[in-house]
Design a protein around this nucleic acid. Structure first.
Lengths: 116, 116
DNA sequence: GATACTTGTATCCTAAAGGATACTTAATTC
DNA sequence: GAATTAAGTATCCTTTAGGATACAAGTATC
């Protein structure tokens, strides 16, 4: 590390990355966003579209995403009450994160196949 | 979800993102890469440059990154044996992930300040 | 031979993430 | 009034991530 200035910028960098990891990291958050983004609005549809996720985990992730202003939850007062989850405009910015992650994942899958 | 084709592509997307999360996710992996990238080569230097990381965690992360071909470990047979960690060429591709994560983290910091 | 330095490991612990599965609530239709 | 449907919650459990702290091995120097 060359000097104080670089060091400060380095620590800001780390903090920003860790913040993103907190909001979008983990196994399920981006998959849930993508599911809603690709047209699934209802709890059971979202659950059904993501292989391996359980009710409990999905429920938690939806709350987390709502708190972070990424999705919104609408109650539709019909026969059996329906809930609709939708992506917020702000959430569209996460594409800038999801796309590179997807791309790199595919690169790395290839890389590891080459190794093994 | 419109059809089988979209559904298959959607599941590949999820898998790729989850793979990246496994390799580069969590609180420390990208910070460690960035630290080495910005010139820290030795264990104690890396540890000192990343606020809050402990020996045990750093040691684990270094192993994980080496297994995933992102850094390499060289033993320098000197007085007290020195170890040098360096970024592999392949690791440079992670910039495509780190940069967007950093950028989005800063956007989100602003967004939440606006909310509160 | 005591001391110091470097790279870790060992031990033990807490917290967070994730998972399995059953159940609740409320309205509605039959 | 039994059955169905939707959106979760409740309960309990396992696994993984992360953290605090001590100290060990090897060599060189004093």
């Amino acid at each position: 590390m060359k000097n104080k200035h670089n060091e400060r910028r380095f620590k800001e960098k780390i903090k920003a990355i860790q913040d993103t990891m907190f909001v979008l990291g983990g196994k399920w958050k981006l998959p849930v966003i993508l599911s809603i983004y690709s047209g699934n609005k209802r709890f059971n549809d979202i659950a059904g579209s993501i292989p391996g996720i359980t009710n409990r985990v999905l429920s938690k992730e939806l709350k987390h995403l709502e708190e972070n202003l990424l999705i919104s939850r609408t109650v539709i007062d019909d026969y059996p009450v329906r809930i609709e989850y939708t992506i917020t405009d702000y959430c569209l910015t996460t594409e800038e994160v999801a796309a590179p992650l997807e791309k790199w994942g595919k690169i790395h899958q290839k890389k590891l196949r080459g190794k093994a």
